[in-house]
Design a protein around this nucleic acid. Structure first.
Lengths: 334, 334
DNA sequence: CTGAAAGCGCTTACAG
DNA sequence: CTGAAAGCGCTTACAG
C-alpha cells in the first residue's frame, strides 16, 4: 500500500509551492503557463488525485448532496434515485444515499449520518420524518422533498397531480362502460393515497355514479396487500367490473389474485395502476396505468436543489401525469 | 444558518481541552467521570455532531466503503445494494454508491470519485472495468467483486453456482417430460451467461438429449431482449415446449411474447427464469426460477470486505442456488 | 503571477 | 487522567 501522493509531493516535483498546485487544480486564479505545465506533468506522473475529504474541510463545502431514501431494492425508489443522480450529473455535486427502510429509528440514523458527513443539501424521498425536524434542517442546508408534503415548506416539496391522474384513470374506465369500479387505495396516512382516492371519487361523482364504500379497500402499496385487498373485495360479494389500484405494485398483486380465481384481465375485470414502473409494460397483459415518471421527478428534485444551492427559489414544477393505456382495460362486457 | 458547533465550542463550554472532548467522543482513553459528564452535557446542550469529514482526515480513515454499481433503478442491482447495506450495518462502516450505467466512461468517473473520496474499501457490482485496474486498486484498498470474475483475484470474487443452478432448472423441465427445451442466454461476454448455458447443455447431455443450436438465442438480460429472442425462436420454426431464460427479466419479456402469440404458460410452453427477483412471485403465472439471493450475496460481499479490512482472508462462500418451482412450468402435453 | 502562513475540525502521540 | 502541540491534505486571503 504505497501512500497516495499529496499536493506537497506534486509541488516538490514541479518545483512550485503547494499554493500554486492548488491554483492549477482549481483554476481559481491564473498561473504561469510553464509552471502550470510542470504541475500538470507532475500530476500525471504521480497519478495524483486530490483528496476530496481534505478539500471539503478546507472549503467548508463537501460538494455532496445527501439523498434520504427508504429502500434501495424498491423499484419505485430506485427510479427516483436514478433520476436524482441524472439531475445532478453535469453539476459538480455528487450524491450519497442513506436508507431509512421505512423505520423511524433507521431513518433518523441515516439522516444523522448524512448530516455528520456535511452534505451541502438534502433530498428527502418519502418517509415519515417529522416535519419540524425537516424544517429545522432546512435552516442549515437546503432541502427538497419528493413524495411527501412538509407543512411550512410547501414550495420545497415536489407535487404530483395525483388527483387529476386518478380522475383520468377512472374516467377512462367509465368511458369503457364500467359502472362498478373498485378502488384499492394506499395507506391513508399518505397524502398521495388520499389524493388518488379523491380523484377516484370525483370521477365517479362527475359521471353521476355513486361512491360505494364497499368497493374501496385499503392496501399498503405492496403486491401482497393488493392480493389481500382483492380477496377482501371478493369476499364482500359486491359486484365490480374494474379495479383502480393506487399503485402498480398493488395492481400486480390484484392481477395475480384475479388469475388465481380464474378471472381474466381485461375480459372479466379491467385493471388500472398508478406509477408506470419499468416492469408494467411487461406484465401480462401489459398494464394500463397512470404514469408519473419517477426519473423525471428525481431530475426535478435535483434541479430544485441546485437552484436552492445557487440561492435561487427552488422553482419546482407540478408534476403532470399521463394515462398510458395498454392492455389491461377493455370495454365492459354485455 | 447558524454555524455548527465544533469540538472547541464543546471544550469551552465544558471547561476542558479539545483533546478531552475528543477522548469522550471516541472513548479512546479514560476520562474523569465528572469531566466526561460535563462534556456530554455540553454536547447535548449544543446538539453537537462531530464532523466526520474532519475526523476522516485526521484519522486517515474515512470509514466509508464505496459500492460501484451499474444502475440504481435496476431491480437486480437494487437488491444487491440493499444486501451490502445490510451486511455493513452493525459495523461502523457506511457505504456510498456510484453508478457506472454500463458505460466505460461513466464507470471510470464513478470509480475515480469513490477513490477521491478516500473510501476504505470497494465493492464492485458487475460492470466491465478492466481486471488490471481493479488489481491495482486492490493494492491500495481492499476490494470485493460480485457478478464478475477478476483474473488473479479469484478469492475476492463472490461466485454463484450458475452452472449447477441452470442444470437443475433444465433437469426439472426434463423431468416434466420436456424434450425440446429452448434457451435464451445472456450476453456471452458475461461469465454468468456462459456458465448458465453450460449448465443447460450439461443437463440435456446428461439426459441423453441432443444440444440443438437452433434452440438457443442470445439476449442481453433485458425484458426487451427476451421478447425479441422469443420472436427469433418462433421465426426459426423449430419446435419447443419449454424455455429456460438466463435471467428473470428476459423471462418476463418472453412471457409477454408468448401472450401476444396466444401461447399459454404453462399449458403450451413451460418457462423458467434465473434470479428470483422480488417481482417474480407476482407474475402471471408466478415464475418458476432459479433463486440466487441478491440480498444474501450483498451481505456476503460486505462481510468479505469487513474481513479484508480486519486483515483477514475474505472467506467468501460459494453461493448456492435453489430451484423455486412456481406455476410457469408443467408436465409436457401428451 | 506566486509563496508563506493560517486555517478547516478533528485526533493522537507526547509530556506531564 | 489531561492539556499543548502537531498534523491530516487541502485552500485561501495576504503580501508581495
Amino acid at each position: 500500500m504505497a501512500k497516495q501522493p499529496t499536493v506537497s509531493d506534486i509541488a516538490r516535483l514541479a518545483q512550485v509551492s503547494p499554493s500554486t498546485v492548488s491554483r492549477v487544480l482549481t483554476g481559481s486564479s491564473p498561473v504561469h503557463p510553464a509552471k502550470s505545465a510542470a504541475v500538470l506533468a507532475a500530476i500525471e506522473r504521480l497519478n495524483f488525485r486530490p483528496n476530496l475529504t481534505a478539500r471539503a474541510l478546507a472549503r467548508g463545502k463537501s460538494m455532496v448532496i445527501g439523498i434520504l431514501t427508504q429502500s434501495m431494492a424498491s423499484q419505485f425508489y430506485g427510479e427516483l434515485a436514478q433520476g436524482v443522480e441524472e439531475g445532478l450529473s453535469g453539476s459538480s455535486y455528487q450524491c450519497v444515499f442513506a436508507s431509512g427502510h421505512w423505520e423511524r429509528a433507521a431513518e433518523q440514523a441515516a439522516l444523522d449520518l448524512l448530516l455528520a458527513r456535511q452534505v451541502d443539501g438534502l433530498i428527502v424521498l418519502g418517509g415519515d420524518h417529522p416535519d419540524a425536524d425537516l424544517l429545522a434542517i432546512n435552516e442549515q442546508i437546503p432541502l427538497i422533498a419528493v413524495g411527501r408534503l412538509i407543512a411550512g415548506l410547501e414550495d420545497h416539496c415536489l407535487r404530483v397531480e395525483n388527483a387529476a391522474g386518478a380522475f383520468q384513470a377512472v374516467q377512462h374506465l367509465i368511458e369503457l362502460g364500467h359502472r362498478r369500479i373498485a378502488h384499492v387505495s394506499g395507506i391513508a396516512a399518505h397524502i398521495d393515497a388520499r389524493e388518488r382516492r379523491r380523484g377516484y371519487e370525483q370521477a365517479l361523482t362527475t359521471a353521476g355514479l355513486p361512491v360505494d364504500e364497499r368497493l374501496v379497500v385499503e392496501g399498503n402499496f405492496t403486491e401482497q396487500s393488493g392480493l389481500l385487498a382483492l380477496e377482501a373485495l371478493l369476499a364482500r360479494g359486491v359486484h365490480f367490473s374494474a379495479i383502480f389500484a393506487a399503485n402498480d405494485q398493488m395492481a400486480y398483486g390484484i392481477r395475480l389474485g384475479l388469475y388465481r380465481r380464474g378471472l381474466r384481465v381485461p375480459e372479466d375485470v379491467s385493471l388500472v395502476g398508478f406509477d408506470d414502473l419499468l416492469g408494467s409494460a411487461y406484465t401480462t397483459p401489459p398494464l394500463t396505468t397512470v404514469r408519473q415518471s419517477m426519473l423525471e421527478q428525481g431530475r426535478y428534485a435535483a434541479r430544485g436543489l441546485l437552484n436552492l444551492l445557487a440561492d435561487m427559489p427552488p422553482n419546482l414544477p407540478r408534476v403532470a401525469t399521463d394515462l398510458v393505456i395498454r392492455e389491461s382495460t377493455a370495454r365492459v362486457r354485455g
